[in-house]
Computed example of a mutant assay.
Amino acid sequence: MVSNVVSNRELFDYWYSQVRFKNETLIAAPGHVETFKLRHDCTNYDQLWKSPAVTQLPGLEQDRTVAVIKYVCTSRVLQRRSTLLRSKITEIEDSYEQLEAERSNFEKIIRRFQQVLFGKVKEAETLQAKIRTLTTENEALKVEAETSKAYTELLEKFETLQKAFEKESKRRKELGKKNQSLGGRVAHTRRFRKERDEARAILLEQKEQIAQLTQLNRTLETQNREMREQLSQLQPQQSLT
């Protein structure tokens, strides 16, 4: 079949249809891949130019055929790579758009959560303020209750004292009546107590006078004894003179 090919166009079309791809992963690799590596590792280039249909051709015809095979394998694998990469780009763009849409949705959700959270924070602050107010009011009520209790206790104390005062007043009135009926007896008792106290005072004064006289007597006795001793000492001296 190859020997019947005459024009370059026919030769090109024939070998173009014979190209087969392999190792699609390497063809679609996102990084840089050398062209010769794509040609050798991703097409059947080596099988084609080494086939008997090519190696049996005469020198120049074989060189022309190998050049065509090299070109069609290279161009087709590069086209395939371009198609796969563009498809990958489209997928990435679609994924990006999807991610952008999801991000937008997430941002909306986050904003709603923030609004809800902010509302909850404000609600919590309001509740805390109410709690502080209620606590203060409760303390004020406690103070008022304690004040009321103290006032009640004061009234009860006043009432108790009033009853005691009335009882004491009643007792004194009754005692006054008894004193009026026993006026003479009380006067006699007072007079007796007065006379008794006066007698005690006189007796005490006499005791003090007796004590003073006793002390004076002791002093005089001491002086008298001393004078006698002096006199007894003077008598021997007079006899010597």
Rank of each mutant, 00 (worst) to 15 (best):
T25Y: 06
L161S: 05
S181L: 14
Y96Q: 10
D46A: 13
R80T: 01
A140Y: 00
M1Y: 12
V143E: 09
F113Q: 11
L141R: 14
K177H: 06
L203S: 08
L234H: 04
Q237S: 07
T74K: 09
L84E: 13
A129K: 13
S148I: 01
T74E: 15
Q223M: 05
T43N: 05
G176V: 04
I131N: 11
K120G: 00
W15Y: 11
A129Y: 07
K173C: 05
A140T: 14
C42S: 04
V19G: 08
I27R: 01
E146L: 08
Q47G: 01
A211P: 00
I27V: 15
L117G: 02
E174R: 08
I202K: 11
T74R: 06
L240A: 08
F21D: 02
G176T: 09
E229A: 13
R228H: 06
E10G: 07
G184L: 11
L220S: 03
T222A: 08
V143L: 13
V186F: 02
E208H: 05
A29Q: 12
L161H: 05
E91C: 03
L213V: 09
A53Q: 15
K122T: 12
R39Q: 10
R185P: 00
N217R: 11
L240I: 08
Y96G: 06
N105T: 06
R132I: 10
S3R: 12
Q62L: 06
Q206H: 07
Q47P: 01
A201N: 06
T222W: 09
L203A: 09
R193E: 09
V77E: 10
T126D: 14
V66H: 01
F118K: 06
I202E: 05
E156C: 00
E166I: 00
I109H: 10
K120V: 13
S104Q: 15
R80W: 12
V77R: 05
L57F: 03
A29R: 07
H32Y: 13
I110A: 14
R218I: 02
E226G: 01
Q115G: 15
Q56H: 08
I210D: 02
R80V: 00
Q230E: 15
R185E: 12
Q215W: 03
L85A: 08
K170Q: 13
R86Q: 15
V186M: 03
A129P: 00
R190S: 02
K177T: 10
S75T: 10
V72W: 09
V66S: 01
K37P: 02
A29G: 02
R112E: 14
N8H: 12
S169R: 13
